[in-house]
Each structure stands twice: as structure tokens, then as C-alpha cells.
Design a protein around this nucleic acid. Structure first.
Lengths: 350, 350
DNA sequence: CTGAAAGCGCTTACAG
DNA sequence: CTGAAAGCGCTTACAG
């Protein structure tokens, strides 16, 4: 009985069709078939068409390994995410970034090789080494730039094409996508300054990330320039820590009248902590999230947030990498400016 | 100057080491090297050790394409996500599922080939066909089982090893992971019944998904069994729709005293809509989320939610697929029961 | 236990 | 424009 079912299944699985089969059936050489299928010169137009038609009819697909073995591209781009699962979950950044990367790869017929490792950045370099050593990929996309990021030297040493989502890194001509964190910080701080806030706090993400350092520096400078007091603390992107830090801030003798959170989950959690501390948002404290997402529109009050086109960011990164793999030398690209979405969580100080 | 930098980089990129190099250097045959490196019998223990040592020293990596071309596994598992980006963003399910899949693949040395396509399920089958046709993958993991899912026949026709996260599907011996949605529904409804609720509503996800149908059926039956009134509506997993449906429900002559939401983002959004409608949670309306996540602990009130071990779910799926690829015939696996995390959003009806 | 050899399915100079 | 042939880097029977 079980046998019956399985034989039905196997009967329908067609045998693999190779270029040689098509060549034989058409009475031409394998080379001609290869040229025709790859759109190269070297075949008569009508021959090419007959090849294409038959290949389609037979359901031919190029063997990716045979192709790669003869020196062609693999058409695969590698991406390693090395953050704890709870942070990956909290950060909607990644899935939006992924969607952008994929939109470009889908158009070019490429695919993404993904590895999610825990909080082990050192395994990231090992993964690049293996993937590149096994020639599984054409290049890698690197996210989450770290302070003194070891990956910069590693990809140069390995010779694997790479794009850094971050930077620019001096003394390394690594194609990169950099965001002007100081400008973003100024947008946020200016918004609060206009509302009359003089004491603000910034609960950032971990300072091991280069962009968090840049943001903290930017917030401090922008606040100082406007004569505001600023407190900065770092949290781990998750709700619980953000809640604790918020409670601690509000216990100070002179608590802030506005708090900027490094991402959306921390902002939501912070609002919860504020409610528990008896502070109303925005009447007593204004709240800003450095990340905009589905979340920031869904809470009450809705949350003022810094919006970036993250899918476009991912798409640009993928495009840079494909160019690099194609032998072009893409320079650093500056990411489009962010925009503040003003919602109900920020108001004039009383 | 630019040349200087690039020559430095290129000088450090080592040439590729092949098995033949190792064989030559050690004065043995390529076959012996292959046996040694693959842990097969056919080489003396000391020869094997010398091969392993030299391979490590030289930084040898097997060419994945050469290996695959000679008939071996690719070590790659395929996964296609075909949902709109805003839904992927809203659903933390995917990233937790991914983390579980990866934990197994990392242990087996495998990798994940990922494709994120928009809301185009038909492209999913085309992707399987191409991946399998190109022999890029050993098999696929299928999520988001649909009503009369076309993929079930497609993978059988293609002959690609596949595991369905859903099912079981009668008349197809497809390895699957199935969840007892009726049991989960009973847990949720029983909790509300105990609190004295007699009129409940269920805002589910889209009914094209088999699990959403199962949940709706389960909720209806469990409610009827307990003599409760139940209203069910379907939304699209995103915040805005959930908010609208919530508002509509509360405008009814006899509004529900408890609402069950299909995921966490809808639950949060629903709470916002309830607040705007002047309903207090949990005093006037209790709220339950069918998904537990970082979000449900971070709102005020925190949200009672159905917890499942999603990473374990992903891990089991990956393990089933690896077994299938290995020639075993894994049967259907029933997923461990869910657990209700009781928080502040549910209370006794007044 | 070891070696010589064929084969996987492509690509790509090289002759014609 | 076309064909015969070598090569990519492995695996795996098959002799010894």
C-alpha cells in the first residue's frame, strides 16, 4: 500500500535533461547549445530559437554546480546575521532589509544564502571563509558594523567581494553604504528643541555597533549646540532593559522631559514603564523612536519615529554587491536622509 | 595610490588549494586524499592524519560545486516566504522559525537558501522548480500551508524532497509538522470561559491559510461547547485592519467582552482601538493574542498570549527534512502543545 | 590499502 | 557560424 503510493510519485519524477540531450536531439554540438542558451554569439538565429524552444519544452535547467565549476558565477549572495534571537525578533529592521535585498536578487535571478548565528561575531568570519572557500557565493553583504570591525580586514584577506552596510572605513576601499547619523540625530533633537524640551535622554542600542556610537555622538553634539542637557545610556534593544533604564531615568532628581529610544520595541516598552511610573505620554514625557515600523502606529499614543526606507537600503546594498561582483568598483554610497514621522508621543513641554 | 592599496589587498589573497595539490605534495593519489578528507575507509590511519593536517594548514575547502556535480548533496535547504513585506514585518514568527531552522543547519554544516517574494504564491512553485532543476538545494521547507495547497502536488511532481509545516495532508505521504489547532483554541476559549465571558470575538488571520481555518473552526466549536456566543472575522495580520475590525465589533448592540487576535501586532493595535473607543482593557474587554512575542510583554497592560516554542518548531522541521534527504521516511510529527501565558489583558467579566 | 581513470554537466578557447 | 576537445575539482567503482 505504501509502496503503491511511492511508486506513483516516483513515476512522475522526470529524468534530468542535459545540454548534451538537447544537442543530440537537434543534431548540433554542445557548444552551440551552450551559446544559444547563454545568449552568446556563435549560433544562427534559427538554431538558437530551436534550442531555446526545445530547452523550454524539456524543462531544462542549467546545473548550477556544473556552471560554477567551469568558472561562472554562482549567483548567490551570502548574509550572516549574528545577533541573539530575541534581538533579531525585536528588530524589524532585518526583515525589511531582507525584502529589499531580495527584490534586487529576484530581478537578477540571484539567491540569498542566509546564516543566523547567535551572538558570536567571530563565527561570522569563519562562515565567510567557508562559504568563499567552498565557492558557494559570489560575495557577502555585511550588516551591523562594529567598532573596529574585524570583518573589514577579514574579507580583504580572503579576497571575497563584500559590501559593508556602514562605514565608510578609512584605509579600506570597501564599498559601503553609510548613513549620516549626525544629521539624523539633529533631526530628532531639533524636533524636541522646538517643542521646548531642555532635558532629554537617549537610550541607545549597544555601543559595540558603530552606528549606535555615531548616533550617541550626534545626539550629544546636537543637544549641546542647542543648550540642552542630555543623558545617554545604552541598552540591548530589548524591551525589559529599556523599561528598567526608563524607570531609572525617571527616578532622577531632574528627570528628562523627553526620551529617545534606539528602536521601536524599546520605545514601546519605555512607554509602558513610564505609565507604571505615573508619567503620561506626551503630557509629562515625550517619546521618540529611532526606528519606524508597524509598531509605532499601533500603540496609544502613536509614537513619533525616525523613518528610513530600509527596503531601499537593502536594495542598494545588493546592487552595490552585484556591481562589485561584475568587476565594477562601486564607491561609498550615502544613504538618503531620514524623515521624522511626527505622531502623538511628542508634545510641547509644559 | 589607489593601486598601492589594491596591490596590498591582492597580494594577501591566497590561490585556491585543491585536493590534487595535497595529493602531489604528499606523494599519494587524489583518491586517497578524498577518502581521508571524507572519513571513508581506504587509507592508512597515519596517511589520513597527514592529509587532514596538510589540508587544514593550507586552508583547503572542498569545492561545493565539484562535490555536488559528482552526485553528492549540496548541503543547502531552500525556503520561500511569500507574504507581503508588511506582514512579514508584523509577524515575528518567521525570524524565530528561521533561528530554529538555522540551529539545526549550523550543526549539520548546512546552509539556508532564502527567497522572499511578495504576495505571489504561484512564484513559490516556480522557485522550487528552478532551485531543484539547477540542483541548488537538497530539499525545501514549506511554511504557510494554504487551503488546497498547490505546493503539495508540485513537490511530488518535481520529486524534490519537502517538508510541510502544516498538514497532515491525506493522500500525500509528505512529511509534515502539524499543530492541533482545536486543542489550542480550547485552551484560549476555556481561559475566557473561566473568567465568565459569554460573548467573545475572534479576529483571525486570512482564511486562505489552513491554520487560520483550523483555529476559527476550533474557536467556534469550543465556544459552542461552552454555551458562549462567538463572532469571527478575518483580517490580514496587520495593525490597521485589526484596529478597524475592533472598532466595528465594539459598535455592535451587544459587543464582545473578550477579543482573541490572530497575532501580536493585531492584538496591540486592537488595544489601541479599544482605548480610542473608550473601552478599558481588561476592565471592559479582555484581549488575547494567538502569538506570544517580545511585544506582548511590553505593552500596558501586558497581553495574555498563546505561547509556542517556535524555534523548536523550526528545528524539528529542519531535522525532518535532513532525515528525508538522508533517505529516511519521517512520518508526520505532532507539535508540542501550546501554553497560555496569562497576563494583565484578561480578567473576570464584570 | 592504493592508484589510474572515468564521469558529473557545464564553459570556452581553438580550429575549421 | 560550428564542432571536437580540454578543463573546472571533486567522487567512486575498478584493478592491483
Amino acid at each position: 500500500m505504501v509502496q503503491d503510493q511511492s511508486s506513483v510519485e516516483q513515476a512522475t519524477a522526470r529524468p534530468r535533461v542535459r545540454m548534451a540531450d538537447i544537442a543530440r536531439e537537434l543534431g548540433i554540438s554542445k557548444a552551440a547549445v551552450s551559446y544559444a542558451l547563454n545568449g552568446l554569439p556563435g549560433v544562427a538565429a534559427d538554431t538558437r530559437q530551436r534550442v531555446l524552444d526545445l530547452a523550454r519544452e524539456r524543462g531544462w535547467h542549467a546545473s548550477s554546480s556544473a556552471r560554477a565549476l567551469s568558472g561562472a558565477r554562482t549567483g548567490v549572495v551570502g548574509l550572516v546575521l549574528s545577533r541573539p534571537t530575541d534581538v533579531l525578533t525585536a528588530e524589524t529592521f532585518f526583515i525589511r532589509f531582507l525584502a529589499g535585498v531580495e527584490s534586487v536578487l529576484n530581478r537578477s535571478g540571484g539567491s540569498l544564502l542566509l546564516k543566523v548565528i547567535g551572538d558570536h561575531p567571530e563565527l561570522e568570519i569563519a562562515t565567510y571563509e567557508r562559504w568563499w572557500g567552498e565557492r558557494r557565493i559570489d560575495g557577502v553583504l555585511m550588516v551591523d558594523e562594529r567598532y573596529r570591525d574585524a570583518r573589514v580586514d577579514a574579507v580583504a584577506r580572503l579576497g571575497v567581494p563584500a559590501v559593508l552596510c556602514g562605514g565608510p572605513v578609512k584605509a579600506a576601499q570597501l564599498p559601503c553604504l553609510w548613513t549620516d547619523q549626525a544629521a539624523d540625530a539633529a533631526i530628532v533633537v531639533e524636533h524636541l528643541a522646538r517643542l521646548g524640551h531642555r532635558r532629554v535622554a537617549h537610550i541607545s542600542g549597544p555601543l559595540e555597533f558603530a552606528h549606535e556610537r555615531g548616533r550617541r555622538r550626534g545626539v550629544r553634539r546636537a543637544a549641546r549646540d542647542r543648550g540642552m542637557e542630555v543623558t545617554t545610556v545604552a541598552a540591548d534593544y530589548t524591551g525589559p532593559q529599556a523599561g528598567e533604564e526608563t524607570a531609572r531615568l525617571m527616578r532622577a532628581p531632574e528627570p528628562p522631559t523627553a526620551i529617545v529610544y534606539g528602536n521601536d520595541v524599546m520605545a514601546v516598552s519605555g512607554m509602558g514603564a513610564l505609565a507604571e511610573a505615573g508619567c503620561r505620554v506626551p503630557e509629562d514625557v515625550s517619546v521618540v523612536s529611532w526606528d519606524d515600523s508597524a509598531l509605532t502606529c499601533v500603540t496609544r499614543p502613536t509614537i513619533t519615529a525616525l523613518w528610513r526606507d530600509t527596503p531601499a537600503y537593502g536594495a542598494t546594498a545588493a546592487r552595490l554587491l552585484l556591481d562589485l561582483v561584475d568587476g565594477k568598483q562601486p564607491g561609498p554610497v550615502q544613504v538618503a536622509a531620514s524623515a521624522l514621522r511626527e505622531r502623538d508621543s511628542t508634545a510641547a513641554v509644559r
